[in-house]
Design a protein around this nucleic acid. Structure first.
Lengths: 149, 149
DNA sequence: GCACATTAAATGTATGTACATATATTTGCA
DNA sequence: TGCAAATATATGTACATACATTTAATGTGC
C-alpha cells in the first residue's frame, strides 16, 4: 500500500517530508513483523538483539558497555534488558574478576538453543526485506548512510 | 559514518541484513534528532505528532479513533498521550454530543501557537533529511513502499 | 422493548526508552 | 599515600509501547 493510504494523508509538502514519514512508518512496520515472530518464543525485540550480540561473543563474555556499543539504540537501558534475560535463564551475570566494576554477561545453553530455533524461521523471511532485490537493498543502505552524513 | 562503524560490526551476511540494520539504526538516529528539538518545547515526539494531526483537523474535532488511524505507530496508546497534552492545556476533551461513547479532541490556541513556533525551526532543517536531494528522497520513498508490498 | 453483540475510550500491567542520579571500583597524580 | 576524577553498572522517574481487560454507549435481531 502507498504511504499516502497507510496513514490517510492525501498529499505531502514535498518528497523530503514524504520520505521521512515513510521511513518512520516502514521501520515501525518491519519491527512489528519481527516482534510478532519473537513473541511466540517469549522474547521481545531488544531482548533478541542482546542475545544475538552475546552469541557473537560466545564463549567470551560481554560487559554492559560492550552491549551498549553494539546495540542499535544506544540510549536504551541494557542493564534492565539483561535483567529480563537473566530471569529467563537465557544469560548469566558474574562479577568480572579483572575489573570488579564490570559484569561478565554470557549466553547460556538454553539461550543458544532458543536462538537456533529462531534462526530457521528468520532465514525464510530474509530479514523482513524479502521484497527487495539485492541491488535495491544496497541502494537503500547507501541512501540511509547519506541521511546521517 | 558508515553503518559498519556505527555499530562496530565489520561485515554483514548480505545486503538485505545490512539494509535492515541500517534502516532501524538510521530511523532511530533521525527520531533522536527530532526529539532533541521538541524537548526544548516540553513536547515528546508522539505528543507532537498528535498535535499536528489535531491542527490538520482544526477547527473540527478529532476522536481517539481518528488519531489512531492517522498515527504512524498504530499500536501506541493515543488516550494517554492526549492525557499529557490535556494536562499542558494544549488540547481539550469534550464528550461528543452525537455519540456519547466518543470524545471530541480539539487543539487549543496555546497548542496552535506552540506548533507555529516549532514550524519555523523545522523548516530550516528540511525535516531531518536535508542531506538528500529531491530525487534521492523520492527514490527512498519508493524503496520503502516496496518493502511493505 | 430487551438481550446481546459491537463500538469507543479508558485502564491495568509488563516492558522499553530517555535521562538523571547513585554506588562501587579503579585510575591518576599531587 | 591519599584523594579527586573517571569508569562500570545499577537505580529512579517520567513517558511511551504493546496488549489484554473493563466500562459505557450504541446498534440489532427477535
Amino acid at each position: 500500500m502507498k504511504i499516502e493510504d497507510e496513514i490517510k494523508q492525501p498529499a505531502f509538502k514535498d518528497n523530503h517530508q514524504k520520505a521521512l514519514i515513510n521511513l518512520v512508518f516502514t521501520t515501525g512496520w518491519v519491527q512489528q513483523q519481527q516482534s510478532a515472530l519473537f513473541k511466540g518464543y517469549g522474547l521481545t525485540l531488544p531482548q533478541f538483539n542482546i542475545l544475538r550480540i552475546l552469541r557473537g561473543q560466545h564463549p567470551k563474555p560481554a560487559t554492559v558497555n560492550l552491549l551498549i556499543d553494539r546495540m542499535l539504540d544506544k540510549t536504551s537501558n541494557a542493564s534492565r534488558i539483561v535483567d529480563k534475560l537473566e530471569a529467563k535463564q537465557l544469560v548469566t551475570r558474574t562479577v568480572c574478576p579483572s575489573n570488579r566494576r564490570a559484569v561478565d554477561i554470557r549466553i547460556t545453553e538454553a539461550g543458544l538453543e532458543l536462538l537456533q530455533r529462531l534462526d530457521a524461521e528468520l532465514e525464510t523471511r530474509r530479514n523482513g526485506l524479502q521484497t527487495l532485490t539485492d541491488e535495491e537493498a544496497a541502494q537503500l543502505s547507501n541512501l540511509l548512510d547519506k541521511i546521517r552524513d
